[in-house]
């Protein structure tokens, strides 16, 4: 690999890291991403940029201490990052689905209590709130 090519790769890597950071900040600014979940992306962006900046020294050190060639090492990094991210998503999904469940249950309970309190016959108390009783896939 010639000097000039290495330089291009370095520049592209730094650019990618910068792009990740800029995109993350922009997403937070537009309120599309919560700050707490943006941290991992900012960290990733900074890490990519730093690796790009100090690639030769960095990869030298990695190879010296772990024996991993830089291709292997990059694959290792990508895998670790993906796994951490997916774990975080799993946690989030579990929490969301649990909250979703509790809300759904509470709505159902409150509807029935409301109906009983108003003393209305079948369905009238909740017809204003609830969708038609015959539900189908179309409603999703």
């Amino acid at each position: 690999m010639g000097e000039d090519k290495t330089l291009i790769i370095q520049a592209l890597t730094v650019l990618l890291g910068g792009l990740i950071c800029v995109a993350t900040v922009e997403l937070i600014r537009r309120d599309l991403l919560r700050t707490a979940y943006a941290l991992i992306w900012l960290a990733a962006g900074v890490a990519v940029a730093l690796i790009g900046l100090f690639s030769s020294g960095f990869f030298y050190l990695v190879q010296k201490y772990t024996g991993m060639l830089y291709q292997t090492f990059i694959l290792f990094c990508i895998l670790s990052f993906a796994i951490i991210l997916m774990m975080q998503f799993s946690i989030l999904i579990s929490r969301l689905s649990d909250r979703n469940k509790r809300l759904t249950q509470d709505v159902a309970i409150l509807q029935e209590e409301l109906r009983r309190q108003r003393g209305l016959p079948a369905d009238e108390a909740t017809n204003q709130i609830k969708a038609p009783a015959t539900r189908g896939p179309a409603e999703r």
């Binding site: 249950q105 709505v107 159902a108 029935e112 609830k130 969708a131």
Partner: peptide, 12 residues
């Protein structure tokens, strides 16, 4: 009757 808005499974 408590009507759940969507299927949550037997446990829920």
């Amino acid at each position: 009757v408590c009507s759940l808005a969507f299927n949550l499974g037997i446990g829920a």
